[in-house]
Computed example of a mutant assay.
Amino acid sequence: MANLTLLYAKAALTSFTRRGGALPAASLDAEVSVDPEHLARYNRVCGFGVRDELPLTYPHVLGFPLQVRLMTGPGFPFPLPGLVHVANRISRSRPLRLGEPLSLHVELADLRPHERGQQFDVVTTVAVDGEEVWVDVSTYLRRGGGSGSGSPAGAAAVPEGERAAGGSAPGGRASAPEPAAVWRVPADIGRRYADASGDRNPIHLHAFTAKAFGFPRAIAHGMWSKARCLAAFEGRLPDAVDVDVRFRAPVPLPSRVEFSTSPTADGRRFALWSRKPHLEGVISG
């Protein structure tokens, strides 16, 4: 796997030279065996228990080095600093288990206009013995030169009638749903998740590095937020499942956040709030 520290340095050094209007026709593959110690570290930081079954979000971190290689590789048109992770959808046909050899494939897809700039997908798939069993689609926004059409960044993951919010406040703004749990997110969660995931984007590590990118405090990783929410459903997700989330606002560190969930026709919706919605998602399957 790639040395992510070197790739982040490369991203910083080449950020001013990246131009273009198309994604490169590039993909990367890797064969991966899960390290039990790494899995245990990931489970601890995200709130999962010790189980033989891989958490739904765990293969994302296995594919992350390949994702960064593609986004720092030749022909990629955007500087890595400044890309905004606005959505993530994971589809699984069956649970993955510790000890299974995993075949990873990562590719870039679907560069398209957005009212605030341009967005594109990074698609990661996992196959076992030639059978595709897990697919992750992460959508990123590159701000600037927007089209004036498309969905706003952080738009709801579900139709208006299935919003995770509990209602409307005066002025038509969504109000916070009734919390099922309240979590305190510690100041070091960005560093701890970075150790487990390899994602050492400076906006997640320390207040002083986050300030260089316009954040008053460090912020939690979006994929940590999704994983922490799914840990609340551990042991209750169907074997074949889709989980679609939109990252609506960063979680500043430290924070006190409220987790809510309610049933839908074929699953559940969930949300993470403080004074504003941070994440909204749906589980179906």
Rank of each mutant, 00 (worst) to 15 (best):
E115K: 15
Y58E: 04
A240N: 09
Y58D: 04
L7V: 02
S33G: 04
H204F: 06
G82Q: 03
G281N: 03
V84E: 08
D29Q: 13
L237C: 07
I90N: 01
E160M: 11
Y8N: 11
G47Y: 09
E31M: 00
E160N: 10
F208S: 15
L230P: 04
Q118M: 08
A25N: 15
L7D: 05
D195S: 15
P263K: 06
S138C: 10
V135S: 13
S225L: 02
D136G: 07
V257L: 12
S274Q: 07
T209S: 15
G154C: 05
E178L: 14
H206G: 05
T57W: 02
S175W: 10
R41D: 14
L80V: 02
R246H: 05
I283P: 05
R41Y: 12
V185S: 09
F76Y: 15
P65R: 01
A9T: 13
V34A: 08
S149F: 09
A87P: 11
E280L: 10
M223G: 01
E37V: 14
G21N: 13
V122S: 00
P252S: 06
S262P: 00
W224M: 06
A174Y: 10
G130C: 09
V133F: 11
S27Y: 01
R69K: 12
A165K: 02
G130F: 08
D199V: 02
T14R: 05
L28W: 00
V135Y: 01
A218H: 10
C46F: 05
I283E: 13
F247I: 05
E115A: 13
P77A: 05
P65S: 03
A25S: 15
R173C: 03
A220I: 13
V251M: 03
F120I: 03
A174Q: 09
Y140T: 01
Q118L: 12
D188S: 14
G222I: 01
A176S: 15
L54Q: 08
P95N: 11
T124P: 00
A153F: 05
L28F: 01
A240E: 15
S103M: 02
E162G: 03
L66Y: 00
V158K: 03
S274P: 05
F48E: 05
Y193A: 09
G145Q: 12
